[in-house]
Design a protein around this nucleic acid. Structure first.
Length: 303
RNA sequence: GUAAUACUGGAUUUU
């Protein structure tokens, strides 16, 4: 789950060498790990081994496999696994449907997503907050803010209550739709409903303000974060660094790096890319190249 | 003869 797949694989092989038989739990864990990094090839090999050993893949197994295929954009294959699952007599649940709906939305197929949503309703499977949030996310990402907000009202009517994920997604949607007023209105609403805005909320608003050119307002939120018990993370820093570079304010960008060096966060690939991009866009291509070289020299792998 | 409210599949932000 924490992404140490190689180590997990080694343990898995040791387990077999020691004559122990993996069970569904073992297989599901390792299949899910491979799927989450987009390695469905190995996941399916494990699935075959699982079946061969006489185990019966369950909803977790199929969910993980379908998720992996969705991530790779192989929606047809995800559906054929779905059919295979049905063929084995397994009854899909809301999680299976959410995986497929989310997959279609990420691949830009809103129509298919709604078709599955309807199918889910026909099977009398009730969507939960995650299912609704996935749907809202897909709509927001495609710019269908009105529709997204309708789903939001709809879920509340059904007493499925929006959580931080739901609010953060909608707030981000409004920010990207250049509707900061609605974004802040929602933030206020989430507090009124007893939710506690988190670092995602802050990052979303900071990014929204930066992208519309209000770096000072963004900076104010950033500075006030700790007073609300929310602490900047690597995304906060990267967002601000990018904004300062884009505003040609290299001094402030360096300032953030400085602050970051005193924090528990280290620069990541986004930070380096942002920095290189900043140098390039301010006619410092030579410095960008040198910086890249120095990074590579320390063993950093550019993407 | 002993062990658990433990462990596996779904949704949010930055280049």
């Amino acid at each position: 789950r924490v992404g140490h797949i190689e180590q997990a694989s080694r343990l898995f092989n040791q387990l077999i060498e020691n004559g122990l038989a993996p069970n569904n739990f073992t297989y599901n864990s390792i299949i899910a790990a491979h799927c989450s990094v987009g390695d469905t090839y190995i996941a399916f090999k494990l699935y075959d081994a699982m079946v061969k050993s006489g185990l019966f893949p369950d909803l977790s197994t199929y969910g993980a496999l379908m998720m992996g295929l969705c991530k790779e954009g192989k929606m047809q294959e995800a559906h054929s696994i779905f059919r295979e699952m049905l063929g084995k007599g397994l009854i899909p649940d809301k999680i299976i449907f959410t995986i497929l709906i989310d997959g279609h939305l990420r691949n830009g197929d809103i129509e298919q997503a709604f078709k599955l949503w309807t199918e889910m309703g026909e099977k009398e499977i009730l969507p939960d907050v995650v299912a609704y949030t996935a749907l809202i996310s897909g709509l927001c990402k495609r710019g269908y803010m009105e529709e997204a907000h309708e789903c939001f009202t709809d879920m509340t009517k059904k007493h499925i209550f929006p959580n931080n994920y739901t609010y953060n997604l909608l707030i981000d949607g409004y920010c990207k739709d250049r509707n900061l007023a609605s974004a802040f209105e929602l933030k206020k609403e989430m507090v009124e409903r007893g939710l506690v805005p988190d670092v995602f909320t802050s990052n979303i608003l900071i990014n929204g303000l930066c992208k519309q050119g209000s770096i000072n307002s963004a900076s104010r939120i950033y500075v006030l974060m700790p007073t609300k018990g929310v602490f900047p993370d690597i995304v906060t820093y990267n967002t601000l660094i990018d904004a300062y570079w884009k505003a040609s304010d290299m001094k402030q960008a360096v300032d953030i790096i400085d602050t970051m060096s005193w924090s528990s966060y280290s620069p990541d690939i986004h930070t380096y890319n942002t920095w290189i991009n900043g140098l390039c866009n301010t006619s410092m291509t030579q410095q960008a190249l040198e910086f890249l070289d120095s990074l590579v020299a320390t063993g950093f792998a550019p993407d």
